[in-house]
């Protein structure tokens, strides 16, 4: 791939018809480097993928937003990651253990792990994501209560674990257990029109990728940067919260976090980002 060149916005075709919008249409032609480490933010799509190339959501954000992600020192989400690190080392639950008691230094034990989730969980007989794996360890190994969705430090600890995979290309193993059938289910959901506005994920993130929907530059809807930091709300956003937000926006009722529907979507959407570097924590508008 390209060497670390900072190509200014030059290559970007300005496709807005009127002066009113005045924003770019295509993903920017730039390489994301974080603290000098080059990320894979565009790459050849896996076989059977609707796109030739997969793009990180970073390529669709404004210059100012993009800049926040190039340096962990400036990245506002790193505060959350640090909270996650503190939780990692904090004893909780009846067993008097912390995550570190068993897993030691996360930089070693969790390196690259987040890039291959969701995985198949034999015990639960369904896919498991990092959030659910954390809960599993809390319940089974620490004698602690599982975190409720998005609460108690779930987002921060998830961001901390995923951050240990920074730069590692996303790759899930669909041959585990019945993961393939969850992928199938996720694909079906992805292409199903929902809600009063009657739109599917694929309408916005595939058919309209690169277009402006009001002020939003439509990306491929990838999740390699999650949990991401949203400047609008000033906090970390989990994958399932983002999915629910997109479903709510088409005026559909949205499934519960970690429900079969959203886990199937997560399996499928993760696969759609195969080969992209984990960028956690990404920064979004």
């Amino acid at each position: 791939m390209n060497k670390y060149l900072k190509i200014a916005a030059a290559a970007v075709a300005c496709a807005t018809v009127l002066g009113v919008g005045g924003l770019m249409a295509d993903p920017i032609n730039e390489t994301l480097t974080i603290d000098g480490q080059e990320m894979v933010s565009r790459t050849k799509a896996p076989e059977g993928h609707p796109f030739d190339e997969v793009y990180s959501g970073w390529l669709f954000r404004t210059e100012e937003t993009r800049a926040l992600q190039t340096d962990t020192f400036n990245n506002p989400a790193m505060l959350g990651v640090e909270v996650g690190e503190a939780i990692w080392n904090t004893v909780d639950g009846k067993e008097g253990k912390s995550c570190a008691s068993c897993h030691g230094d996360a930089a070693e034990s969790m390196k690259g792990i987040g890039a291959s989730y969701p995985k198949w969980d034999k015990d639960a007989n369904r896919p498991i994501n990092i959030e659910l794996q954390i809960n599993k360890c809390r319940e089974n190994n620490m004698g602690a209560e599982p975190y409720p969705f998005d609460k108690g430090g779930q987002k921060e600890l998830t961001a901390y674990i995923k951050h240990q995979s920074l730069g590692t290309p996303v790759k899930i193993d669909l041959s585990q257990g019945e993961l393939q059938s969850w992928w199938d289910k996720g694909k079906e959901l992805y292409y199903t029109r929902n809600g009063q506005l009657n739109l599917a994920c694929s309408n916005c993130h595939e058919d309209l990728m690169g277009k402006m929907i009001r002020a939003d530059h439509l990306s491929q809807g990838q999740i390699n940067g999650f949990p991401t930091y949203r400047l609008k709300s000033g906090g970390l956003v989990s994958v399932h919260n983002r999915f629910r937000g997109c479903i709510r926006d088409v005026r559909a009722s949205f499934p519960k976090a970690f429900s079969d529907e959203l886990m199937a979507l997560e399996v499928y959407v993760t696969w759609r980002g195969t080969g992209l570097s984990v960028e956690t924590p990404g920064v979004r508008q």
Binding site: A15, L18, V20, M212
Partner: peptide
């Protein structure tokens, strides 16, 4: 305006380009 530009509303920021002007 989420999807259409409309010069008659140029006082409003951000017009989409999903559909034709």
């Amino acid at each position: 305006l989420a999807c259409h530009a409309n010069t008659d509303m140029k006082d409003q920021l951000f017009h989409g380009d999903v559909g034709p002007s």
